[in-house]
Amino acid sequence: MADELSKRDQRWQIRIRDLHKSFAAQQVLRGIDLDIERGKINIIIGGSGQGKSVFMKHLMGLLSPDRGHIFVDGQDIIGLGDVAIAKVQRKFGMVFQYAALFDSLNVVENIAFPLLERYRLPKKEVLERVRDLLERLDLARVPGIEQKYPAELSGGMRKRVGLARALVDRPEILLYDEPTTGLDPIATRNVDEMIRRTADDFGVTSVVISHDMASTFRIADRIAMLYEGVIIASGERREVMAAPHPVLKEFVETSGAVHFGGRAS
């Protein structure tokens, strides 16, 4: 079993087995088993306080579990040293809930930050890569965008700049932490399209943490539900819809986005 997991799999990019994590007496993750499919949009849903963000931080090696394994392209990242984990982290890009742009840096400096910190590239090349991303993410048409500071941007624009910063080092895996929280329905749809387009255009594996069911059913290739520290349902969207777990069914129907046996909104 361990031999099979420690080989690079064509289909599964990240394989998580028996992941446990506690904070003091509070057990947050109670044995997570999950596979993340390469090049697809994998959405992990769950209510507030179910451990979604803690789980995501484990994927990037920002937190160490009490027990369990995370295989990224066949390499177990648990227990790796600083240098080795930094190498693995370069495969990841993360888009934060509220973008988490650096207030003291302008748009260009924010997007270029990972490149300037990790490599010694000529300024011209860095600027070219930043401008290419601004173009591809529809930001270049905003007048003076390069010199604007985060406080001068709208919520949607901040998200796109955050995405550009996550993409600039050409990651293989993109993590989104509740990307549609706090957005109006139109901005939510735009962010959904942005995630879909990014997955298609850049060929990245997307892992999205969300409790927005409408968005989930609009863009997900695969869905997993995290409930009380374990994955209670996972699979392709159609499989999950066809035979929903009772908790998932209740969660989804309460959101009003989908009625099983009915239609998606």
């Binding site: 370069r90 993360m94 988490a100 207030d103 930050f113 910190e117 990790r118």
Partner: peptide, 16 residues
């Protein structure tokens, strides 16, 4: 402010 807006976490994701 950087801490509560996750800018400190963002630094960590860039291995800083």
């Amino acid at each position: 402010s950087m801490k509560i807006t996750e800018q400190v976490d963002a630094l960590t994701t860039f291995a800083v």
